[in-house]
Design a protein around this nucleic acid. Sequence first.
DNA 1: CTGAAACGCCAAAGCGCTTTGGGCGCCCTT
DNA 2: AAGGGCGCCCAAAGCGCTTTGGCGTTTCAG
Lengths: 344, 344
Amino acid sequence: MNLKELSQHLNLSQTTVSRALNGYPEVSEATRARVKEAALRMGYSPNARAKGLATGRAQAIGHVLPVSTQNEMVNPVFGDFLAGAGESYARAGYEVMISLADDTAEERAYRALRNSGNVDGLIVHAPRRQDPRIPLLTELGLPFVVHGRSTETEIPYSWVDTNNRRAFRRATEFLLDLNHRRIALINGIEHLDFALRRREGYAEALTARGLQTDPALMCSEEMTEIYGYRAARRMLAGDDPPTAFLVSSMITAIGVRRAVHELGLELGLDISVITHDDDLGYLKNGHDVPIFTATRSSVRAAGRQAAEMLLKLIDRPESGPMSHRFEAELIIGASTGPAHERMP
Amino acid sequence: MNLKELSQHLNLSQTTVSRALNGYPEVSEATRARVKEAALRMGYSPNARAKGLATGRAQAIGHVLPVSTQNEMVNPVFGDFLAGAGESYARAGYEVMISLADDTAEERAYRALRNSGNVDGLIVHAPRRQDPRIPLLTELGLPFVVHGRSTETEIPYSWVDTNNRRAFRRATEFLLDLNHRRIALINGIEHLDFALRRREGYAEALTARGLQTDPALMCSEEMTEIYGYRAARRMLAGDDPPTAFLVSSMITAIGVRRAVHELGLELGLDISVITHDDDLGYLKNGHDVPIFTATRSSVRAAGRQAAEMLLKLIDRPESGPMSHRFEAELIIGASTGPAHERMP
DNA sequence: CTGAAACGCCAAAGCGCTTTGGGCGCCCTT
DNA sequence: AAGGGCGCCCAAAGCGCTTTGGCGTTTCAG
């Protein structure tokens, strides 16, 4: 059932049927009702490609997930981000298109995506420092919102981000206030911008108290459970081990906890842990008593915000680069406590 | 840059340029080379919508994630499934389109998706018992592959699934062999088919040994960490508590472990736990020694398989309903041990 | 040397929709 | 009674691509 058939069935022109369906005023309410009823009854719904060709809009948003060869995993945070964004998209009648972009042919992929006309705008995930995608997309004139930011990118762009630096500075200060001096940082991959900022916040807090960062207490990898486990085991086995860990994700913190338990130590008593908490649907940080002391910032809310922003940007591109920064909340849980000496 | 411009630039017709680019034989290799070179140099890439209109194929696959109002979370397994499927899609030049389908207007949503022409086929996630989407999609003539199966659906359809029943039967038998008699089942939502089958496997194993299922030892909810924690706490606090848990996901098992530890009990010693393990990228079940005894089946592999199947089905629909069943592997980890009495 | 087949290319129609630029009645005004 | 305005509707062009049918030129067998 297409427009032509529907219009023939109604003895109306395609024009009139199209206008009736799309709410244009040039058609009487009587025929509009008649058309709508018939469309519903006969199960008519428009061909999105044809509509897109004619209007020049795809009614779809692209999400580009960088999947490099070393970094094959899809960030578990993505699902929640999408769930948040999806609400806004659905309300505005937009679809979601996912591109798993191999980062070897990045530029060509983005150019092709623009030319394809498949999307009206996109969300850029996992920005790096000086991310080349930002100037590229700006040049291509494709509206986009970055989830995160890109240090050392001079040109203006739209973004939604958490104040990662401040969150990790605060968390570090909290541990310092509890008299911890050997604080380890189990960070995400540091060519990603958020991880960089977290390290900076951590380092700032230490320096402000006259402490040095210790390379032996810092590591940077993909945020898996195993990574947290191994890093904690390794560091705790060293001489002059840390008394506290600052961890980049709940999943990784769970690995740290496993290592701590295996060594017969107790969280919050022998070893303190603060983690960042994205407030994922399937991994809530406790209900009444939080499991971990954490810097919490809902990735779902970020998704919602980014989507709203992008839709606005598509609607009125001149409304210029926008940005929104979420402040993370410091949640005090049972995984932190005052530092004290460990038995050797 | 579109076809017309490119062809004018080359002093060729659109026909010839199109054929040159798409590998048709009616054009000499000399001009083909010339055309390809120019296309590359001038950054030409086709408009997917126009191409789709003309060919009737969208070169895109839809993934429909049911997002009901109670069940707002996106299954964390989805990312890995997509990563697996994405490899196949990319190789065949297909894009991915996500629909977060509200299950209230399911039928209309699927009809509209078909009419929209946005996808050539789709993957159905989270099938339920007697899932109405299967007859609907069959009637619509849209190729699809179900990730999972649908009990009590009579018409044939294509699917990729894990042998959930057998996996949970084996796991239960393993616990029974270790002399456990009070075995709890912390299941996923049982209106989803996979959870149903798991419960059946569990019940079968018990009945085969002359044991009864005990409603107090069975529960069914969304597979979050908190759920595992609460269920385990509640059951362990009851009189005649379980000595073993059979858990539906790693995340939930982590919640169970947390509860067990909080009660001062030790996994594998006081309490045994077997979990299903989807082999997620960010949550590997150990490296040398598995954390949990588990029934493992890679959801990524399932994604790859489902994608291959769907692409084949799109290519030759008459190649009929296909199916592939993965057998889960029973991994023996440190979370299980012989049953013995607990101090009251 | 001729006719047919093969080759290399082109013009134009068509995919399903939107949108421009009218056109035809009818009512209201003057 | 004529003119203007408005409400309602239509025909046709166009979005960027593929594909059908055809046309001139070579090539090669008979």
